[in-house]
């Protein structure tokens, strides 16, 4: 069996989860088995996961699973994996998956991989592809062991509806005592969280002053994009730290990354060069970012950005 741990936000399954179920189903088919979705906590419509290929949902509707306590989750997931004779367990490469992957790998004593972009099945063997060295290399290896575990990138592949709602089995097993007590969860922004955003507009020191951020907000608004920034911008307090991308900030891989007034230092690129398409707006023709770009505009950002926003609004109208 392939088991996928599901995640929800605001009462809906995350896109990362729909992707994980889609990929889990594809791998299961190639292995001649099925994909089971494990749903911890309350859920509105768990059966809908069948539309993405799950053969069955195991729903554990327990209050104590509302927060991700790594010890509790590890115990529960390995219990389910044992019951279902899981050959592969998939978590998403999210804050939840990060709490769990190392623990699960130790439990299963088998192959593991984090931040996987692709799983290939050949001759009954599973191998994975992931990026390493901050996107400067691609790593491949075979996962061996009775049960292996991976964290799958949220946008590893598109979520595909290929099936119909599936049966939901309620599971009620003993849940170990919590090791962590969650006090509160603070959401810091209304937009799509950066790691999940399809489009990201990002700005650097070229903006000169935090009061100039309005043009970035307008562009992001016209695109439905999330906002990011370079490290010096966060360090000087122009923008909150959770928007800082790069080697020491967040690593993201949106479909479209628009870099405005950012030079493209290697440490910045490390966090964004897995983006599908990169647009660079910079007045310096020598800016290293142009080498990593798909489209470039070499001009004053204060002129270009409002024009681009305008062009997008026109195109939408």
């Amino acid at each position: 069996m392939v088991i996928v741990l599901t995640e929800q936000q605001n009462g809906r399954f995350k896109n990362a989860t729909l992707t994980a179920v889609t990929v889990g189903t594809q791998v299961a088919r190639a292995l001649g088995t099925q994909c089971i979705a494990l749903v911890p906590g309350k859920a509105n419509d768990p059966a809908s996961l069948g539309e993405y290929g799950a053969a069955k949902v195991i729903h554990m509707d327990a209050q104590s699973l509302e927060n991700v306590d790594s010890k509790v989750y590890t115990a529960v997931i390995s219990d389910v994996a044992k019951r279902e004779k899981a050959g592969l367990v998939i978590v998403s490469h999210t804050s939840t998956g990060r709490q769990l992957l190392g623990r699960l790998a130790v439990r299963f004593r088998g192959g593991f991989a984090s931040g996987v972009s692709k799983v290939l099945v050949e001759g009954g063997k599973m191998s994975i592809t992931r990026s390493a060295f901050s996107g400067k290399a691609i790593e491949n290896y075979v996962l061996s062991g009775e049960t292996v575990v991976i964290s799958l990138l949220p946008n590893a592949s598109p979520a595909l509806k290929t099936g119909t709602p599936c049966p939901v089995e309620k599971l009620d097993i003993p849940i170990p005592a919590a090791s962590v007590k969650v006090r509160e969860v603070k959401r810091t922004e209304g937009r799509v969280p950066l790691p999940e955003a399809n489009i990201v507009v990002s700005a650097g020191r070229g903006l000169k002053d935090p009061s100039n951020w309005g043009i970035i907000e307008s562009l992001a608004g016209a695109l439905g994009a999330s906002i990011a920034c370079s490290r010096p911008v966060a360090d000087s307090g122009w923008r909150p730290h959770h928007e800082h991308v790069g080697q020491t900030g967040l690593a993201i891989r949106p479909n479209l990354y628009i870099a405005i007034g950012i030079s493209g230092a290697i440490q910045h690129l490390a966090g964004v060069n897995n983006s599908k398409v990169i647009v660079v707006i910079n007045k310096d023709p020598e800016a290293p970012f142009f080498k990593a770009a798909d489209y470039g505009v070499c001009a004053d950002l204060f002129e270009v950005v409002p024009k681009l926003t305008e062009a997008l609004r026109k195109a939408h109208a």
Binding site: T94, R183, V185, K186, E189, H242
Partner: peptide
């Protein structure tokens, strides 16, 4: 994602 979680351990 998009925030922080504060816990006691």
């Amino acid at each position: 994602e998009g925030g922080v979680e504060i816990s006691e351990v």
